[in-house]
Design a protein around this nucleic acid. Structure first.
Length: 338
DNA sequence: GGGATTTGACCAGT
DNA sequence: ACTGGTCAAATCCC
């Protein structure tokens, strides 16, 4: 069955409106039953959207990213004399232990997307951030090695963001990209280094919006994604299904709402850029062109909505990590209220 | 020359 | 013992 993209947009917009209503109800002290009803409706709307989008792949055509890396042939094995025969340095060992602890403290994998680099492109797409490869590993059972990247600004700005890129066994043009940790760096240097944090966030949002408006193509291919519910799998993004250590036990429903919105916003803000100037979404393997304005409107509305929900931040990565919820959140949240 | 990548070695978790 | 993740010297590239 062919599903128009506008239907999904409508459904999402409906969910957004109801969420807004829910927030208003909560603020005005409406009954828990009312909230429950609304939450149910919201979930229904989102479930509907999810079922329309049966599966997902983010496809970016002809990205120039990583072509450089692809051009360079594999060098012969560099016999590294390092540490060979060298006695273990206790200080080094200590550092390693510290690193390992830090590693443990990092947030869990926050999102997993499948990026199809498109024909003629040998590497995954540029996601707007600068990454530095620090390792590559052959993974058991996987045809292709996994690449390990960390944010270039790790040293200069202490940015903890990392990602793993692995070429899919099924489709060599598809890359599984797993992100870990939130970017604390600025994507690009600001002209005014003393700019306030707020304006920095605004700029990030602008950049996200811009990259979304100008370059994203989303396609679904019946692929599976990490999801708490099998029935709700297969989206070009993942919900924050894994409980992140909650540092704030008194998280409010507002926080949850913001997180939920963030999850959806993240779906549209999935890090990807390309040179293409249209946005399309496919259902059941068939790509459909979406009116750019529709999605622009949705994205803008979501950003606005997040802002009106007193979002402490609009960085979607942070949103995903800072909120502990799953797909069942609305019910949980309301039962929490009652 | 500086930054990025490659790749064998090392380490911790299971 | 095995595996995934990270380190860091060597090397490449601009």
């Amino acid at each position: 069955m062919e599903v128009g993209s506008s239907m999904v947009v409508e459904e999402l917009a409906r969910g957004r409106e109801m969420t807004r209503q829910l927030q208003a109800d909560i603020e005005s002290g409406s009954s828990a039953d009312t909230c429950r009803l609304l939450a149910k409706e919201i979930l229904s709307a989102f479930d509907k959207s999810i079922s329309m989008v049966t599966s997902g792949t983010i496809v970016v055509e002809n990205s120039s990213a990583n072509q450089k890396a692809a051009k360079s042939p594999l060098r012969p094995l560099a016999k590294s004399p390092c540490r060979e025969g060298a006695a273990p340095d206790s200080e080094v060992q200590l550092q390693r232990r510290v690193m390992c602890k830090k590693r443990k403290m990092l947030p869990k994998w926050t999102s997993q997307v499948r990026l199809d680099s498109g024909p003629g492109v040998e590497g995954p797409i540029d996601d707007g951030y600068k990454w530095r490869k620090y390792g590559q590993k052959d993974i058991l059972g996987a045809e292709h090695p996994r690449g390990y990247y960390r944010c270039t600004h790790r040293n200069s700005q202490g940015c903890p963001a990392m990602k793993q890129v692995q070429r899919s066994d099924d489709n060599p043009l598809v890359f599984d990209v797993t992100y870990r940790g939130a970017h604390t760096c600025r994507k690009r240097p600001l002209a005014d280094a003393s700019a306030s944090q707020e304006s920095q966030q605004q700029q990030q949002n602008q950049e996200l919006l811009l990259s979304f408006q100008t370059g994203l193509k989303v396609k679904t291919e019946g692929l599976d994604f990490e999801s708490p519910e099998p029935s709700s799998s297969s989206l070009p993004f993942s919900f924050p299904s894994t409980p992140v250590e909650s540092t704030n036990p008194s998280s409010t429903l507002d926080d949850c709402l913001v997180g939920y919105g963030g999850a959806f916003s993240n779906a549209f803000f999935s890090p990807a850029t390309s040179e293409s100037n249209y946005f399309s979404m496919a259902y059941g393997g068939q790509t459909l062109q979406a009116a750019e304005s529709d999605f622009t409107e949705t994205v803008s509305a979501m950003a606005t909505w997040s802002a009106t929900a007193n979002s402490p931040m609009l960085d979607m990565d942070l949103l995903l990590e800072s909120v502990d919820l799953d797909l069942e959140f609305p019910f949980d949240a309301c039962s929490f209220l009652s």
